[in-house]
Simulated assay, not measured.
Amino acid sequence: MILLIFWGTVLLVITIRVYIKLRPPAFLKKGGKGKIDFKSYSNKLEVKLANCEIKTNKYTEEVSRPLSRISMLDGLYQGERNLTLIEKTVTVFIYTHTKPDGSKVKFYSPPIYKDESVIERYLYEDVSVIIYIEDSANYYFDISFLI
């Protein structure tokens, strides 16, 4: 029994030491909604949405209806009967930033699955977005106002 308590304590101490050694630094801890918290240590760049290039893609997606016994039998006769086509739109904002040395860097927003009319409304309202930049490869394009 004493041997079991001893080895359990040793294992606990080793686990704690390994955790302390391998845990990420405080600035890499995840912030709200699973995004890395760049806001606390990165450069902040405020950009008007009208200055961004907007790329939009429309596509249709096949979605199957919930299956019932009758719909399964209908599907044997005509397979596409249980499918509905839904039109979707995905938009991406692209901002091209010119550095002081004259080189250009492009920053891409995450995909936005909103209707074009919603995006146009924000363009009409002259909304600003914030890009938190650590370097050209690590940045966070803050579009939380769209969510």
Score class of each variant (00 low, 15 high):
Asp37Met: 05
Asp37Pro: 11
Asp37Tyr: 09
Phe38Ala: 10
Phe38Cys: 10
Lys39Arg: 06
Lys39Thr: 08
Ser40His: 11
Ser40Tyr: 02
Tyr41Phe: 08
Ser42Ile: 00
Asn43Gln: 07
Asn43Lys: 08
Leu45Val: 02
Leu45His: 05
Leu45Pro: 01
Glu46Tyr: 07
Glu46Met: 03
Glu46Ile: 09
Val47Phe: 09
Lys48Leu: 10
Lys48Val: 03
Leu49Asp: 03
Asn51Val: 10
Cys52Val: 03
Glu53Thr: 09
Glu53Lys: 07
Ile54Gly: 09
Ile54Arg: 04
Ile54Glu: 06
Ile54Leu: 03
Lys55Thr: 09
Thr56Glu: 06
Lys58Met: 06
Lys58His: 04
Lys58Ser: 07
Tyr59His: 01
Thr60Arg: 11
Glu61Asn: 11
Glu62Ile: 02
Glu62Val: 08
Glu62Met: 08
Arg65Asp: 02
Arg65Phe: 08
Arg65Ile: 07
Arg65Leu: 14
Pro66Asn: 03
Pro66His: 12
Pro66Met: 11
Leu67Phe: 13
Leu67Asn: 01
Ser68Asp: 07
Arg69Asn: 12
Arg69Leu: 11
Ile70Gln: 15
Ile70Leu: 15
Ser71Gln: 07
Met72Ile: 07
Leu73Lys: 14
Asp74Trp: 10
Gly75Leu: 01
Leu76Gly: 09
Leu76Cys: 02
Tyr77His: 15
Tyr77Cys: 15
Gln78Arg: 14
Gly79Ala: 15
Gly79Gln: 15
Glu80Leu: 13
Arg81Cys: 15
Leu83Val: 07
Thr84Asp: 15
Thr84His: 13
Ile86Thr: 13
Ile86Ala: 15
Ile86Asn: 09
Glu87Tyr: 05
Glu87Trp: 04
Val90Ala: 02
Val90Asn: 10
Val90Phe: 10
Val90Pro: 05
Thr91His: 01
Thr91Leu: 10
Thr91Cys: 04
Thr91Lys: 11
Val92Glu: 04
Val92Leu: 06
Ile94His: 04
Thr96Ala: 13
Thr96Tyr: 08
His97Lys: 11
Lys99Ile: 09
Pro100Asp: 01
Pro100Gln: 02
Asp101Glu: 08
Val105Trp: 10
Val105Asp: 04
Lys106Trp: 05
Lys106Arg: 04
Lys106Glu: 12
Ser109Tyr: 10
Ser109Val: 01
Pro110Leu: 06
Pro110Met: 13
Ile112Phe: 00
Tyr113Arg: 12
Glu116Gly: 06
Ser117Gln: 15
Ser117Ile: 15
Val118Ser: 13
